[in-house]
């Protein structure tokens, strides 16, 4: 471990990339990205290109910086005033960290689903159309349509269509999470960021969410953090393995799981990791 840190500090350690990535259409381009929580560096020189229209999984032991990296993409880390970043992240070739960027505009392009279902304390309907409402959309017909579309997409429509006006807290955990996904896709973002979306759910609910993620791939780019290997293998096209704030190996999911190039990755995937 200390060895790795040394190597990192001295810039000797290099990420191992899968050559297949070269052919992909890139939507998010993370360039030499460092992030500090106060004095503590949480991300080290991340270079990572996320392909459009695919599911990319971030795996790694807990505390390795997966969430931090994910939240860096939609600049949610900005909320903390002791966070400092270096390097850049580009979305569609435009810098996310430029000073003139309008944060709400930016975040509208990226829906986010959190670890724990976090519906707002309002009705199911209002939850789903919240991103549109704050965007100034007032027409009921549009809102109704978006609500139905998003909920259908999230596979929740049939379950809740008769109780749209009821409080979202009345839903089960899995339903709440699918509601959050519906809310995330309602404004038709380009990217959906998911931070361990199934960690608080039971296997059946997890299964449903995984199905949903697979179907999302057709329309959106999905970046998903998970510490469940099987899940990563099941839903993702690409997988990035992170360790101690460092991107160790990144490539096609099949390759990462079948024949990882780095020993650490292999250890982690096979569960031989501390």
């Amino acid at each position: 471990m200390t060895e790795l840190l040394e190597e990192l500090k001295n810039n000797e350690k290099k990420t191992v990339y899968d050559p297949l990535l070269k052919d992909e259409n890139i939507i998010i381009d993370i360039k030499d990205f460092n992030l500090y929580y106060g004095n503590k560096q949480a991300l080290f020189k991340i270079n990572m290109q996320i392909p459009k229209g695919k599911v990319t999984a971030l795996i790694g032991p807990s505390g390795c910086g997966k969430s931090t990296l994910l939240r860096s993409i939609n600049r949610l880390n900005d909320l903390l005033d002791y966070v400092r970043v270096e390097g850049d992240i580009l979305l569609d070739g435009e810098s996310v960290y430029d000073r003139s960027v309008d944060l709400s505009e930016l975040r509208k392009k990226m829906g986010m689903v959190a670890q724990k279902p976090n519906p707002f304390p309002m009705s199911i309907y209002d939850n789903v159309v919240y991103p549109l409402k704050i965007n100034g959309v007032k027409k009921k017909s549009i809102l109704d349509e978006v609500c139905e579309r998003s909920l259908s997409y999230a596979g929740l429509w049939d379950e809740v269509k008769d109780r749209l006006k009821e409080n979202a807290f009345g839903l089960s955990g899995g339903q709440q999470q699918r509601l959050c996904i519906a809310r995330a896709i309602a404004p038709e973002p380009e990217v959906i960021l998911m931070d361990e979306p199934c960690s608080a759910l039971d296997p059946i609910a997890t299964y449903k969410i995984e199905e949903l993620i697979l179907s999302l791939r057709e329309k959106f780019t999905v970046v998903i953090v998970t510490h469940n290997m099987q899940q990563a293998a099941r839903v993702s096209d690409f997988t990035a393995f992170m360790y101690m704030g460092f991107l160790v190996e990144y490539g096609n999911t099949i390759n990462i799981f079948k024949k990882p190039k780095v020993k650490d990755t292999e250890d982690y995937i096979t569960g031989r990791f501390g």
Binding site: L76, L79, R107, M110, M112, P131, I134, C180, P187
Partner: peptide, 9 residues
């Protein structure tokens, strides 16, 4: 953060 992430100011 859910609200901010949804694009709210």
């Amino acid at each position: 953060s859910a609200s901010l992430a949804a694009g709210a100011t």
